[in-house]
């Protein structure tokens, strides 16, 4: 699909598998959230001054196995891209993030960020992260970061010391981990609904 000059394409996909190939024209904006579904999103910025935002949140349990894939190409300069992909993996869940970020030689003054954070809640859950950056332009600002960790034991104990049982404390920390992805949703109604869903687990 094509996002025409100056247009905005903004969507939140919840539990809906996403396969998108997007070409952006100058000054267009793409903002996509995918919550709890596999996705593969390819974006090519073909015009100047494009904005691309991709957010993924995968909260996986049991034997679930989910791959999230992004391919972002800055063919032309002056654009920005921001990606935040988070996985929470419990039980025997498997997660995989493949993130290609390419900044072409002509794409000067590009700003591109890719972040992948993952939380493992069990010994048997597994996460594979494959970021790949290809930067051919020299005047760019690009960052990428990937980390996989466990819940903070000292925070868990702190909450238990205040009378909160361990299960509830874990849930509070997991919700806190997921919140920034949800908070970045523009549509207030959808955002509040999702925040209520995760907070509802705690009350």
């Amino acid at each position: 699909m094509k996002v025409s000059k100056g247009d905005i394409f903004e969507r939140v996909f919840i539990r809906e598998e996403v396969h998108l190939q997007i070409e952006q024209e100058a000054g267009s904006k793409v903002k996509i959230h995918v919550i709890n579904a596999p996705f593969s999103i390819t974006v090519n910025q073909l015009g100047e001054g494009c904005q691309t935002e991709i957010y993924g949140l995968e909260n996986l349990h049991g034997e679930e196995n989910v791959t999230a894939e992004t391919h972002v190409t800055h063919s032309v300069g002056g654009g920005t891209s921001n990606q935040l992909i988070k996985f929470v993996l419990a039980d025997n869940a498997r997660g995989r993030f493949i993130g290609d970020l390419k900044i072409a030689q002509d794409a000067q003054e590009t700003e591109a960020h890719q972040t992948n954070r993952n939380l493992l809640l069990s010994e048997t859950a597994e996460m594979r992260t494959q970021p790949q950056l290809e930067i051919y332009a020299d005047d760019v600002k690009a960052t990428h970061g990937a980390s996989t960790g466990q819940l903070d034991e000292s925070a868990l104990f702190y909450m238990q010391q205040r009378g909160i049982d361990k299960q509830k404390a874990r849930q509070l920390l997991v919700n806190a981990f997921m919140k920034d992805v949800i908070n970045s949703i523009s549509d207030e109604r959808v955002r509040e609904e999702l925040l209520n869903t995760i907070d509802g687990v705690v009350e």
């Binding site: 702190y158 909450m159 509070l172 907070d199």
Partner: peptide, 12 residues
């Protein structure tokens, strides 16, 4: 005291 980002004082 432990910092707990994302968990508000009120909720906690």
């Amino acid at each position: 005291p432990v910092e707990i980002p994302g968990v508000s004082m009120t909720n906690f």
